[in-house]
Design a protein around this nucleic acid. Structure first.
Lengths: 196, 196
DNA sequence: TCTCCATCGCAAAAAAACTTGCGATATGAG
DNA sequence: CTCATATCGCAAGTTTTTTTGCGATGGAGA
């Protein structure tokens, strides 16, 4: 029932190829078992690699997870630019919702929340999200230039509000995010940032 | 360096008293070491109780945590009723922010997000939050009756939005929540639910 | 008060997680 | 192409976590 899920390999693999192999196996393991059930032993088996090598290279499971998630999650949520703040925000929220509901997206959200004392992991997570949030703030900034948005509006607050909503839905409601939610959320917030 | 932190007890304790002792020790342990560093061994020592008893009664650490957090966290965030939706929402958000920043509040938020496959835990967590959120929706409903809020406004959406914002702040920004945030957040949302 | 029994402490043992020494081999530098 | 070296597989060992059998006891009910 737990047959090795890798093809037999005669030669030893190491370096970049080794890393890629392990990272892919990690992502696959996250997707199939959930981020809380990823163990070095499983990943090693799936990657056709030895467990001890994982201990040596990544030292701890959280380190492996953050490495895999961050390097395998580039630009999953694009920043739209349609010329309309409403459309942009709705698209952004919709894309975010879709990604948040994939196994990897859920894992990323859950993992980002899980506290961990290792400072390097903590900073990696923070940098990751700050980067994403700052990118999304661009939607608001463009709206300001077009006169669609009140210049005094807090771009970060808007992004955090929408992001937090999706976040809560995924983590607490568990059930799927209604397709109408992004539109409703944007409609709720938009009047608060339109020029008076 | 790790001296037993409990008073010596000659007699054996069990039943409700045993449970209370362990739950208190668990809360104390969460507060002092963070929810990720709570182990049966520590809690048992602090409670002056045997580790194996914890394994038998709660089986896993997450079960103990959810039990302790839920039974020791009653009505930490009151639902205000000042006659003004703006004031009510602001007070609610402020109280939520304050609680969210206590060690127990943070633990509760973080833990609620952490995935766990045990179905009973999952449902406990969901029920807990749904109960809190539903209570907060009352603020909006009262506003509708007073004509302050558009009857078509989605009370749950409002609550989820504010809650999600605080949630995100605690989990991602790590740093303290600015005292101005609750007011800003309410100001952002209010125009979206006022009668047109 | 007395008895019964579920619950607890204790200790031993099983399982899981993590570490380490050593020989082998990719891989990159010269 | 050849060599030096860091990285990997392997297996044995160590530590931490979880389980279990058994005797003891507190507490509920007769």
């Amino acid at each position: 029932m737990e047959a090795p899920q890798h093809e037999e390999r005669r030669t030893q693999v190491r370096g970049a190829k080794f890393r890629a192999l392990v990272l892919d196996a990690t992502i696959a393991r996250i997707a199939e078992a959930g981020i809380d059930h990823v163990r070095f032993a499983d990943v090693a088996d799936k990657a056709g690699v030895h467990e001890a090598s994982l201990y040596r290279r990544w030292k701890t499971v959280p380190r492996l997870l953050i490495d895999a998630l961050l390097t395998r999650t580039q630009a999953e949520v694009p920043i739209p630019d349609t010329g309309s703040v409403r459309r942009d925000l709705k698209m952004f929220t919709t894309d975010l919702a879709r990604f948040a509901q994939t196994p990897i997206g859920t894992a990323l959200i859950r993992f980002t929340v899980a506290s961990d004392n290792a400072p390097d992991i903590e900073s990696s997570r923070r940098e990751f999200w700050m980067q994403r949030l700052s990118a999304a703030e661009e939607i608001i900034e463009r709206g300001k230039k077009r006169g669609e948005v009140d210049p005094g509006a807090d771009a970060r607050l808007v992004v955090l509000t929408l992001g937090g909503l999706i976040h809560l839905h995924v983590t607490h409601l568990g059930t799927g995010i209604p397709t109408t939610l992004p539109g409703q959320a944007v409609a709720l917030i938009l009047p608060g940032i339109t020029p008076s």
